[in-house]
Design a protein around this nucleic acid. Structure first.
Lengths: 163, 163
DNA sequence: GACTCACTACTCGGATACCTTCTGTCCGAGTTACTAAGG
DNA sequence: CCTTAGTAACTCGGACAGAAGGTATCCGAGTAGTGAGTC
């Protein structure tokens, strides 16, 4: 089991977007994180498709968060990028084979599927309990309250002005 | 994120192995579940490598559980087949780019990695709380107390005796 | 000076190759049970 | 009848192809800002 690497990028982008006051192009976000611009663009498209960010076209276009940071959970971002499908899919092998359980007895999911589903629910619940605002607060505690505003200013500054 | 399909097979095999009194070959387990014998053999090898089952070679060989069903958790099986690596791997992109955080300030994992790690821990904790014995009990509640012993007898019977 | 219009530059969005991982398969090494011969 | 060597069949274990999804990239459609030209 491996989570798409784009999830990390998308989460970081959501955090830094809280500090921006104008639309930020995907290329600018890629430059900030030193990652592939084309591939990060794909992740931002996924966020846009999920309604977490709004895309603004044109010369001064880019991406803007659609909601307050407190109203965006880590689960929202993860599901937007990685999909909402559960990690475990039951193929009902209990019904197969010479001693398969007859379908009439399979009214409820098999115990194994239930256990895996419960674990998946716990995972999602943990992610749902963390908002982007919480992440912003943690970053400020770790790196100081001035770090994020500085990044926000850098994001909104012209590309030619950096080093 | 998608979990290896072999996890489901391995879990079912562990449940039915509790009903067997003699070593069960991988081919027999595959026949019971109507799945690819070669590929299921690979999963059983993973379980053997993890020490959950013991492989017995020779003519009447096969696989036997090494511990009581109550001492094998679903997490043990999942990790044996799918690997113990966490789904989320932090690539420390906060240190990259023009505004990267200096390494001296990165003593603790970044907040995003912490949130993902906590979710992973919740997922594992949920799986750790379910033992194979629990699954056996659920199966008996669902399909009746006679189903599993019947499967056990079928597993230990000669292959030519089935229909 | 204010308005209109065309142009340019920049943005997102989806369609297109490449590569790692998962899926599925095969054959060889090793061990056990069985068979038959000999004492 | 018991012991013993040999044989044969069956097992696991790891090495080998094929397919799917993730990774990385590119180019086209569309829009906002910019500048010149005109009233």
């Amino acid at each position: 089991m491996k989570l798409s690497g784009g999830v990390e990028w998308a989460l970081h982008c959501c955090v830094v977007l809280t500090a921006a006051t104008e639309p930020v192009p995907a290329a600018r976000l890629a430059q900030l994180h030193d990652v592939s611009p084309s591939y990060l663009a794909k992740q931002m498209q996924a966020l846009s498709r999920a309604g977490l960010v709004k895309s603004v076209q044109g010369k001064t276009g880019g991406y803007v968060l659609t909601r307050a940071a407190a109203d965006i959970t880590a689960l929202d971002v993860v599901q937007a990028v990685d999909g909402a499908n559960p990690a475990f899919v039951c193929t009902e092998i209990r019904q197969r084979g010479p001693l398969g359980t007859p379908p009439e007895e399979c009214t409820k999911p098999c115990p194994i599927a239930r256990a895996m589903s419960a674990a998946d629910a716990a995972w999602r619940a943990s992610l749902r309990g963390v908002s982007v605002a919480d992440l912003v607060g943690s970053v400020e505690r770790d790196s100081g309250p001035g770090a994020l505003p500085g990044i926000g200013a850098w994001l909104n500054s012209a590309q030619a002005s950096d080093g």
